[in-house]
Design a protein around this nucleic acid. Sequence first.
DNA 1: ATGGTTGTTCCACAA
Length: 262
Amino acid sequence: MPLRLATWNINSVRLRAPIVLDLLSRHGPDILCLQETKSPVEKIPAEVFQAAGYTHMVARGQKGYNGVAILSRVPLEDAGHRDFCERGDARHVAARLEDGTLIHNFYVPAGGDEPDREKNIKFGHKLDFLSEMRDWFHGEAPKRSILVGDLNIAPREDDVWSHKALLKVVSHTPVEVEQLATVQDSGNWVDITRKDIPEGQLYSWWSYRAKDWDAADKGRRLDHIWATPDIASAAGASHIARDVRGWEKPSDHAPVFATFDL
DNA sequence: ATGGTTGTTCCACAA
């Protein structure tokens, strides 16, 4: 059975419930992982998604910031979460499918503006979060696992509109790119999007601040789908739905898709 | 070098 999976930083699930429904009806993923829901779990309009066939939800939330949720039309169970950096932030949740496949949904800290942990504690928090991910996966040796989310790092030169212009911009600095590589190595994670689309510019986020995001096209690939090697070969059909960035009242992120023949 | 936009909450802050 092919499993169609999507990840999308929704930037308020309550405000954007209508376009979540549009995405579900037009693209019909089996599982949709959301980040920046910005809502306590009990205030997520789960009944609206249930009515559309997405009868399962695993989520963590808090008031105003962060928040992650997994909506599914196939059965899955809550597989817990980890409180990275012990701040009580809702930035990770995991779910297990009936066949045992584990799905991690992450919202990595954005890291502020200044890429220097001495001057900017948010950047330090981002690096510490990534170190904890690395150490955790190093100990876990994940199997049959999928990791998705807004990792807030665009690792490759062709994951940003200008490598040179962004070398000192948080999300594409060498220290972050190296740190993300250590996370990837620690779990033997395969970048599924780039396995399927190895060549060319690829973005999943465009700032709200650009006056014409589509024409300027100053994007970054911040949203990722990874998998462990035992199921990476079963993955395909990767796609970033760029057009969604142009919908009514859009998120600044576009959803990323992949299919797994599990 | 600067300012540009959006969302939530409370009278800023985070992205």
